[in-house]
Simulated scan of single mutants.
Amino acid sequence: MINREFNIYIDMAIEARDLVRGASDQEISGVKEDIKQLKNIKITTITILDQNGAEKLGRPIGTYVTIESPPLKINDPYVRDEIVEAMEESMHTLIGEKLKPQDTVLLVGLGNWRATADALGPRFIEYSPITRHYHSYAPDALVEGMRPTCGIAPGVLGITGLETFDVIKGIVEKVQPALLVAVDALAAQDVKRIGTSIQMCNTGIQPGSGVGNTRHAITEQELGVPVIAIGCPTIVNAAIIANEAVKKFCYNIGAPFNETTSFDAIKEILSPFGGSLGVTPKEIDEIIENTTRIISMGVARSLFPGISEEQLLLYAT
């Protein structure tokens, strides 16, 4: 879905839903929602059932799971364990019966490792268990029950000169995995979501969409292999923040707020950046570190059931 005022793609299904519902908060035809509140986290599962729901939310038919927890961005071990468990359960929901114990899984870390706010994907690969080569060259070094996994952080076009999709497609054709798990940083519509939400879906991902640099979609339709996409918001467009600040200021002093006037003023100020100026917090290094470790373990636990975290960490790159 596009935020039409600023022509910004909305990465998170839960934010697209909120935008469609608006103040009325009415149910959306073709969209099913389930909310589960645990001790430290809230899990919202949005299922787009048909084409009507897909058109309303501006994203493909499928299942979107959002795990929300403000303490996610800090290193709280109790919250961490709850999120990892929720991710493991959600992965099983999204994968269904598509994966057998011996199947190969390709892990893809999308993003630019030179930009901290965009390094979530590459760091995910760094912390994930990689085992495919052991199956070929050192099977005795594997814990019993470990499937073959391989990983790639293909970088971005500006660094490699290669389209990310082309790199991934070439690997898929050669390796022929049964499942692809792609992790990428997302752009949020609310600063409160930075480092506090994880989105998981079975519909693939369009890299760069949240920052206006859309690349070729990484989906099952394009690659011929099921794709699970996982992301965490690390950036918010400056136009979104500015508009909310203007609105809050007007309400606080009792002045009328004019949406059109606000949009026009913000667009004029941000015109040197083409409307693509993004904002990320100064503690983004810590947010990336904590969320990456949580996401990588959540995925690993789902792919290697019965294997302890201590053993899984031994196979991280």
Rank of each mutant, 00 (worst) to 15 (best):
M1G: 06
R4H: 11
N7Q: 15
Y9G: 12
A16S: 15
D18A: 14
G22W: 05
E27D: 10
I28G: 05
S29N: 06
G30A: 10
G30L: 06
V31R: 00
E33P: 03
D34P: 04
I41E: 00
I43F: 01
T45C: 09
T47G: 06
I48D: 01
L49H: 07
A54F: 03
L57G: 00
G58K: 01
G62S: 03
T66C: 03
E68C: 05
M87T: 01
M87C: 06
L94S: 02
L99T: 01
D103L: 03
D103E: 07
V108T: 07
G109H: 01
R114H: 15
T116L: 12
D118I: 11
F124Y: 11
S128E: 05
T131V: 10
R132E: 11
H133F: 07
A138K: 06
V143D: 13
C150K: 04
C150Y: 08
I152V: 15
G155E: 02
L157Q: 10
I159Q: 13
I159G: 11
T164K: 04
F165S: 04
D166Q: 15
G170Q: 12
G170H: 10
V175W: 07
L180G: 03
V181K: 01
A187L: 08
A187H: 03
S197W: 03
I198V: 09
Q199A: 12
G204Q: 04
P207V: 10
Q221G: 15
G224T: 13
V227S: 12
A229D: 12
G231I: 03
N237W: 02
A239I: 02
A242M: 13
N258Y: 08
E259L: 08
D264K: 06
K267C: 04
K267F: 04
T280H: 10
I284M: 10
I284W: 02
N290K: 11
G298P: 09
V299S: 07
S302N: 08
F304E: 03
G306M: 13
E309P: 14
L313E: 13
L313V: 11
L314Y: 09
A316M: 09
